[in-house]
Design a protein around this nucleic acid. Structure first.
Lengths: 134, 134
DNA sequence: TCTTACGCTTACGTTAACGTAAGCCAAGCA
DNA sequence: TGCTTGGCTTACGTTAACGTAAGCGTAAGA
């Protein structure tokens, strides 16, 4: 059962120590303590990876906290399971909206790129530009 | 050529007046002025929509500014066209990373949901719960 | 003429997500 | 024994993206 120090994790994921401590302070991580020192297990690594993926997606930390929290909710009772299912639905809708936005934007970027290339071709064939090779 | 007032746009897009003024102050919008009043044309509406889509995607405003700026860059000269093409590449990479992240997350949510439903079925068949109908 | 609606600017307040010291502890080693 | 390394806490600083007044201008309706 391998463990990691705070700076090992920080380097692996390209974040600062401050960031990791901050995440712990806000309940996104909960590493073991040996004396005062933090000891990170693999589950903590996975959690950190989830948090950072959430960040890449642009979610605020408190929302990330709720999302990550869903992953390790105990089965619990029926009411809680239904609540969790509802939450999953909400997140999925949110993510699918994002995916739509992304695909629209990608399509527009493609369009923009085509027009750019056309302009470029027109320029370099019609009127050979100043210092451009070829 | 229809125009809009600031509060019309605000209501249509579900943002506050402050937000729109803030966007102008930071160069994301640039409406006409008639005296002191802002007059929004359709191009401004489109721009606002682009900005808000960027926000939904979780991009910071200054990045949104650069992205939106690409859409209305004048063809210009070869050097600038090449720069623009490069920028398009960067944005596309970024968006595709996000799409990947989204799809991973969606897959995990699916997984989670399946387990939830399984637990739920086990609970309601094996040991009929307290106040749950059916 | 008064006031109500709508818009404007200026400016201070706020929250999130860390950055950046400052000062302290404990282990290892020269 | 002194120094260095790595980690710790406490706490103030910072930036982004607005919120929230306060105070003023102006055109339309009662």
């Amino acid at each position: 059962m391998q463990t990691w120090t705070i700076s090992e994790l920080a380097e692996e994921f390209g974040v600062t120590l401050r960031t990791i401590r901050f995440y712990e302070e806000h309940g996104l991580l909960d590493p073991e303590r040996r004396g005062r020192q933090r000891v990170f297990h693999n589950s903590d690594r996975v959690r950190l990876a989830l948090v950072l993926r959430g960040k890449r997606l642009g979610f605020p930390l408190d929302e990330i906290k709720r999302i990550v929290g869903m992953y390790d909710a105990e089965p619990g009772e029926v009411g809680q399971l239904r609540y969790l299912l509802a939450q999953i639905g909400v997140r999925r809708d949110e993510l699918e909206q994002r995916r739509k936005d992304i695909e629209e934007t990608l399509a527009e970027l493609d369009d923009l790129e085509r027009r750019c290339r056309a302009d470029l071709a027109r320029l370099s064939s019609g009127l050979p530009e100043v210092g451009e090779d070829a």
